[in-house]
Design a protein around this nucleic acid. Structure first.
Lengths: 131, 131
DNA sequence: AACTAATATTTGTATATGCAAATGTTAAAA
DNA sequence: TTTTAACATTTGCATATACAAATATTAGTT
């Protein structure tokens, strides 16, 4: 189980790194950016929840996207809002295209049915095992 | 798929880190060590294959185990053999116990059948996606 | 209103891993 | 036999992620 889950995560990671190289983003950066474009003003904590990453990791991801002028942060009190820049909105269709390409690729290799089922099962198990 | 596989890998990782803390080893170190005890003289390349990690990562893992006097390396020509020390052999039963505890734990949470099936499916998919 | 507790985010530091280049070694070809 | 190609391992460097502590802010209690 340990190996299988890690091995699968790594090959999937590799496949997606490859796909998102087209927009010069890592998969995590890309998914975060898509979320922010779809829901401007989203907060780090909520992003962490959606992406299943820790808040500190989210901070680091945002920092990088900010340095590339793809998002901006506004800080009011203890909450921070993350907004996409026009540059990010422009990029959005390409992001979607990458996401689609990624899905198409692994569907082709593994079969749609199997894939969807596996994805559901994995998400389910991850939930159960969580804290 | 991307999230699901990563999320599952991370929770499984966390669970196993927890289990192997008893012997003060990371899961990767522990599995590598078990392989070496079971088959003394195993070579890094072959370990990389079994563990689905890259050779460079294996080198690093071995270095650490060597510094903790759990394995020794002998180098003849271009090939390297890794042998367990007596200390490692002594530790072996505890390693097995940890592995068992790990399995028991997630069986309890997820159910044996489901788990075994998922593990097989994941391994299978990882293989298909590989290069 | 002052103090404490809860919450959101960030920062410092550590680990795991990989890639690409470097090194050292054997095998094959010229 | 010298040169070249293939191979196994290691090193240097980079990335992704997490945990724990630090910060900053709001809410609740007395």
């Amino acid at each position: 189980m340990y190996f299988a889950s890690n091995a699968l995560a790594r090959v999937v990671e590799k496949l997606s790194i490859d796909v998102w190289k087209k927009v010069d983003l890592s998969p995590s950066h890309a998914y975060l950016l898509m979320l922010v474009v779809e829901e401007p003003g989203m907060q780090p904590g909520s992003l962490a929840g959606q992406l299943r990453l820790t808040p500190s990791t989210i901070t680091r991801l945002i920092e990088k996207l900010e340095s590339r002028k793809l998002v901006v942060r506004t800080n009011e009190g203890k909450i921070t809002n993350v907004y996409p820049t026009p540059k990010a909105k422009e990029l959005f269709p390409k992001l979607i295209a990458c996401a689609t390409e990624f899905t198409t690729k692994y569907y082709a290799i593994l079969g749609k049915e199997e894939c969807d089922k596996l994805t559901r099962t994995m998400a389910n198990m991850a939930d159960k095992l969580d804290p």
